[in-house]
Design a protein around this nucleic acid. Structure first.
Length: 429
DNA sequence: TCTGGGGTCCTAGGACCC
DNA sequence: TCTGGGGTCCTAGGACCC
């Protein structure tokens, strides 16, 4: 069978959505990411800014140096995910087998659909699928207004790499049997699953391209080498694997997720324990709220501390499943001294929930004591007006545009839920 | 020019049980 | 008194992806 696995990737997705909402951004250099002058990185960058060297993942300060005249925007995930959902709806018209890999990336399986889509003019089944994938790309552009690229291959690795070749706004197919020739000249780093660490190790071994990697019998048995070998052989996949629905959190019904975490980098490193605890309290509150929204309770709670030297320590504990912020925060406070082992100031703190169980019946019942969890009482308000409509204690917002408070910083002392502040999020519709 | 925030998967050692 | 493996869970860290 020919290449029937498709990787569909939205081109600089966040920038494209921002342009839909503000057409004046069309044709300009646009960078979505952290605020210029603050800590953070580039999340998405328009094609106009790429010749200047701006890349996603680089420090925002570096981006400003390279592209001082670009338009800088904060990421707005809540705004983007409905668009991703609309894209998925379009994709499902073409094949029922759609896997959401990330907010801007989907895999599709067209095996068995050739007969359905066949037209008299198609020279063969490959031509049929290629034509249909082009039509799918056009449909996304026409109906959602977003540019997309697609790669076709015999497996997901090849399809993913093909979609990178297709960008922007194109389609690229790697025929069955052409995989090895397609891979051979490309740098090892271009293969999905080979990152900077593996690239460095391979370079040390004198391997730069995927062709060189495949020719080296001494690397056989190494996991990455086997992964490349499998892809290169044109190995078929049984199925796309499990869907990854975590990207559509606003629609939580029945979705499984492995972990829920929130973390925050301080604008400036913090040595004061009370401020670290205040931030952890806010994070614990947020992850618990998200867990309750999904109807899950966590058996494992993890605290993460990154100090000024960028050294990161995580400490976790498993026990009775919970999604209550009092219990979670209590465990967080117990774990904190073990995670913050060095005396260095703290750069980042995080709270993670994992090892989930379904909701216990008590979550749905009225609170017996009235003070067991203020969180559940606030959930209804937040369901209507958004998370930031009600806040326990005063904690800065993550939006950097036009905000007075420092992003991610605890702006006040930890309160015990007494100082509840309520306000309408001025951004909510 | 310092390095975000949300995830997943893999590895490896130790505890504990059979 | 000495000595097995296998399975599963927990914990911690690392690599990678978008």
């Amino acid at each position: 069978m020919g290449p029937r696995i498709v990787c569909l990737d939205l081109d600089c997705f966040f920038v494209s959505v921002e342009r839909l909402l503000d057409p004046s951004l069309e044709g300009k250099q646009v960078v979505v990411g952290a605020a210029p002058g603050k800590r953070g990185v580039v999340t998405a960058v328009s094609y106009e800014a790429r010749p200047l060297g701006v890349r996603s993942g680089m420090a925002i300060s570096e981006a400003v140096r390279l592209a001082p005249d670009a338009v800088y925007l904060p990421p707005r995930h809540g705004v983007y995910s409905p668009y991703a959902k609309r894209v998925r709806t379009v994709l499902e018209r073409f094949t029922p087998d759609v896997q959401t890999a990330s907010i801007d990336e989907f895999f599709l399986d067209f095996r068995g659909t050739e007969r359905l889509w066949h037209r008299p003019g198609d020279v063969d089944a490959d031509a049929t699928v290629l034509r249909v994938v082009w039509a799918m790309r056009e449909a996304i552009q026409a109906e959602v207004g977003l540019p997309a690229s697609a790669g076709l291959g015999t497996n997901r690795k090849i399809a993913k790499m093909a979609s990178n070749v297709a960008k922007p706004a194109g389609v690229f197919m790697v025929g069955a049997g052409e995989e090895a020739a397609f891979l051979a000249p490309r740098p090892v780093r271009s293969f999905p699953g080979i990152g900077p660490a593996t690239e460095a190790r391979l370079q040390e071994a004198g391997v730069r391209t995927l062709g060189e990697l495949l020719s080296r019998s001494d690397l056989r048995g190494r996991r990455v080498a086997e992964s490349v070998r499998r892809a290169s052989s044109g190995a078929r996949e049984e199925g796309l694997g499990r869907d990854r629905p975590a990207f559509f959190e606003h629609d939580p019904k029945g979705e499984t997720v492995g972990s829920i975490s929130n973390e925050r980098t301080f604008h400036a490193d913090v040595g004061d324990r009370a401020r670290v605890e205040a931030q952890l309290r806010a994070l614990a509150e947020r992850v618990c709220w998200r867990a309750r929204k999904r109807g899950v309770r966590a058996r494992t709670i993890t605290v993460k501390v990154r100090t000024s030297d960028f050294h990161t320590v995580q400490r976790s504990r498993s026990g009775e499943a919970t999604a209550g912020e009092r219990e979670v925060f209590r465990v967080v406070l117990e774990l904190l001294p073990r995670a913050w082992v060095h005396r260095r100031p703290v750069r980042l703190v995080g709270v993670q929930l994992s090892n989930f169980e379904g909701p216990g019946p008590q979550l749905a019942l009225p609170l017996p004591s009235g003070r067991a969890s203020i969180g559940t009482a606030l959930d209804a308000v937040r369901a209507r007006f958004g998370y930031d409509a009600v806040r326990l204690g005063a904690v800065g917002r993550s939006r950097w545009q036009g905000e007075g408070s420092t992003p991610g910083e605890a702006a006040g002392p930890p309160s015990d839920g007494a100082g509840v502040s309520a306000r309408r999020d001025r951004r909510s519709r």
